[in-house]
Amino acid sequence: MSENKKSKKKSRRSFIHQASGAMGIVAVSAAGWPLVDQMNPSKDVEALATIEVDISGLSEGQSKTVLWRGKPLFIKHRSQNEIDEAKSVNIEELPHPENDDERVKNPKYLVLIGVCTHLGCVPASDKGDFKGWFCPCHGSHYDSSGRIRKGPAPKNLEIPPYTFKDDNTILIG
């Protein structure tokens, strides 16, 4: 009887300590989240994540660079030649096979994030062996569809999410 009582008392005791410990752990981890989350993009930064670009003044062959989320965006008005060239490539031979059709919404306008997929430098336009872009940092060559053709970069230049608001306005983000 008294033995039973004793063990009962003991189990209640350890239950309280366990509950206390659990509360303490919950408290510490709950306190941790705001300390981590504060480094995520703040609300003003998130609100700037969408921009509108006016492309009415962009004639054939010209390209335009705008800043989006702190990175350069290339918007290129491609000539028919460049479009044909981009389409004629046999994609089986490419390091990162993608059809030109998958990379554009309107074949006349190519929209790219101007950040080399190797280590984040900005490629120069109308340079390199494939008449697209050339990254000066480690020598990656991109073609007129922004696809990697030669050099250390593993992937094609990234396409940002965008839509044509009307014929002359692109909404990016």
């Binding site: 504060q38 995520n40 003003d44 930064v45």
Partner: peptide, 13 residues
């Protein structure tokens, strides 16, 4: 004010 309004949990911190 940026901390108070924009930073995540900034007002709390």
């Amino acid at each position: 004010e940026h901390i108070m309004r924009n930073v995540n949990h900034g007002w709390l911190i």
